[in-house]
Design a protein around this nucleic acid. Structure first.
Lengths: 205, 205
DNA sequence: TGACAAAACGAACGTTCGTGCTTATTTTTG
DNA sequence: CAAAAATAAGCACGAACGTTCGTTTTGTCA
């Protein structure tokens, strides 16, 4: 019981640290110092640095889901939810949910060149996220909110790219307007594929 | 004389290594081993790890300019050059000019959370590159090839975002189609802002 | 060719890395 | 409240880190 609480507080800190220093720059000694505990005591919770990294990715994913994805799910399916997801993501950067910017963008660029289970875990997280965007797009299409010919993978790619671009400019350059630029680009792009609501009530199906 | 040649070969290797392992993961011992030389001999060329990192960034910038930017400058100014820059960038990813993908994307995401001269050097490189894209856009606008109301900063932001998105999908996921997706998104976007050539000869001014 | 400078080397510095093993201290439970 | 189990600490390890040193090899040019 106690162990679980400690483990969680370790991971909370590990996520913050890794978002700044990277998953490889995340160091057991540094983490232990930050938490006023011994290296060995902390180490025992994970058994290896790799396990710590994997657990850190999981913890980051949980934070991401509860801060970004789940809130957007309360918007009604279709176009509103798609827009809600995009706005939620940009607000996640503005709110500095991770002190070093988007954890998964950083992790993706850090591990995109080296094989191993850590990279695999990052790939899986990103796949799930991209899949969620795609699903929101196809739902919007199936609801009749978007052009039926819309290419979901393509649009998801474009939206995700603009997320990364926003994170880059905001985090590296401190450019707050980048978030507005991304918002504008995304919403104009989605608008260009939109089928406007016919009447107030008569939606498709 | 000899020293300069050695230094260059060190930096060539350092750039490749850093594009995979990151600028912080770039290690003097590893680099020396790779080049069959001693740590101390290599170290003497730079005096500190930070200087090595800065020199590595410079070397990467040189490679980038000669592989990506300079070739595109042979296209005539305006719309053709803008398109040439975009195609050149995507080809740079396809050709694996850096073995770990775009050096500057990786460096940007690695250092976007920590202050210091290394980060400053990365910011400057990215500023120059983004400035070059913007300049190509304003030239295309001034030549009458693009809508006179085009927002150059906005469009440069969007193009750069799609570059990053392409690098991400290609490098982390091995998705070759991502380059096609980026090409399509960029060219359709630019096309949407294009003023078609009136006649074969009668360009603006 | 001989003298001097430049370049590379090998060994060692103190630190920090990840990782074991053993002991002490909590926390949970009968 | 004592016994059992879980958790944290202490200590030590080998390896790698960036860095410094004195020495040796290599290159350049009068």
């Amino acid at each position: 019981m106690k162990g679980e609480r400690t483990r969680q507080s370790i991971l909370d800190r590990a996520v913050d640290l890794a978002s700044v220093e990277g998953l490889e720059g995340l160091t057991i000694g540094r983490l232990a110092d930050d938490l006023d505990m011994s290296k060995s005591g902390l180490f025992a919770h994970f058994g290896s640095k790799e396990e710590l990294q994997l657990a850190t990715i999981d913890a980051a994913a949980e934070r991401f889901v509860s801060e970004v994805f789940r809130p957007a799910l309360s918007a009604e399916r279709g176009y509103p939810r798609l827009i809600a997801i995009c706005r939620s993501w940009l607000s996640y950067i503005r709110r500095n949910v991770f002190p070093g910017g988007c954890f998964f963008a950083a992790a993706s660029f850090e591990f995109d060149g080296r094989p191993g289970v850590v990279r695999d875990a990052i790939v899986q997280s990103m796949d799930e996220w991209m899949g969620a965007i795609e699903k929101a797009i196809t739902m919007a299409r199936d609801e009749g909110h978007l052009d039926p010919g819309v290419d979901a993978k393509q649009l998801a790619f474009e939206i995700n790219s603009l997320f990364f671009g926003a994170n880059f400019a905001f985090q590296l350059r401190g450019d707050k307007r980048a978030l507005d630029r991304a918002t504008r680009a995304i919403e104009e792009r989605i608008e260009s594929l939109r089928v406007p609501p016919r009447r107030r009530l008569a939606a498709a199906r």
